[in-house]
């Protein structure tokens, strides 16, 4: 009881601002006379959210699968490449220029190619999301694995520990907070990738819903889709934040890079 009270009091500024903005928005539309196709009122957005004619759950499911797939591919590929780079100087020299090149490509511009190669569907959209999100993971993994006190590595040498053991016992745990903070960025870029893919070509998903409203001028539905997109993104981000707290409780209090 006391705790929930304190929670409410702590959130009071946020909640009040939210309510004020909502009221101002509603008034601007219903009293100020802004036309609904430019800015739908909160009431009509809410109506669109609960509109039974739009199969929201199916669209949300498709987009969510794309986002999670993009996130997982980016995480696995990023950690793998980052580990390779940290493991061997030669691999690092061979790989880095390519990775930097891929990263400088505007991924949005590559999206149409993916669709030519793979056709419509969930997979190309996943890959676009993964491509946008994997680079920070590569870099942070490599940095986390190599940014270690020289004295600590000397300790490994004194006990003639094999390279893999130093990796497992020292380097990899050291990299956890680095990797997790990159994954927070990836969680956001996976959303961007999935939506961009759906913009380019698709018949399902929340990005498709937004594109479709362009011709029908049904702006309220576009707003509702935006609401769902940010909710899915928020959940993904929340999962990573939770993982961070579970996996690296020792790195709390701003110790995260």
């Amino acid at each position: 009881m006391m705790r929930s009270m304190r929670w409410l009091v702590a959130r009071l500024p946020t909640v009040s601002l939210f309510v004020i903005l909502l009221i101002a928005w509603q008034l601007a539309v219903s009293v100020g006379g802004i036309r609904e196709y430019l800015l739908p009122s909160p009431a009509s957005v809410f109506a669109a959210l609960t509109n039974g004619e739009i199969p929201w759950s199916r669209h949300i499911w498709v987009t969510a699968v794309e986002i999670i797939g993009a996130f997982v591919i980016a995480a696995v590929a990023g950690v793998f490449l980052g580990t390779m780079i940290a493991w061997s100087r030669i691999i690092s020299q061979a790989l880095m220029p390519f990775l930097v090149f891929v990263n400088t490509l505007p991924k949005v511009a590559v999206a149409p190619l993916f669709l030519i190669w793979m056709g419509y569907g969930i997979l190309p959209n996943m890959l676009i999301g993964a491509m946008i999100g994997f680079f920070p993971v590569v870099i942070n993994t490599a940095v986390g694995l190599t940014q270690i006190d020289r004295d600590l590595l000397d300790l490994g040498r004194v006990f003639s520990a094999p390279k893999w053991k130093v990796f497992v016992k020292i380097r990899i745990p050291n990299a956890y907070p680095f990797i997790l903070s990159a994954l927070k960025i990836t969680a956001t870029s996976a959303v961007v990738g999935a939506i961009v893919g759906e913009f380019v070509a698709s018949q399902r998903g929340l990005g498709y819903v937004i594109i479709a409203t362009q011709s029908s001028m049904d702006t309220a539905v576009a707003f509702a889709a935006l609401f769902w997109i940010s909710l899915v993104g928020l959940v993904t981000f929340g999962i990573v934040a939770m993982l961070t707290r579970i996996l690296t409780p020792w790195a709390e209090n701003g110790e995260n890079p």
Binding site: D151, L152, D154, V158, F159, A161, K165, K169, Y176, E255
Partner: peptide, 29 residues
């Protein structure tokens, strides 16, 4: 081998407990 080293900084592994930090040389060796 058979040397103990202490540095200016404690350089403990911050994800390990103190006990597990003290046991590190055994694991590395």
């Amino acid at each position: 081998a058979a040397v103990g080293m202490v540095f200016q900084a404690a350089v403990l592994l911050r994800w390990r407990t103190i006990l597990d930090n003290v046991l590190l040389p055994a694991e590395l060796a």
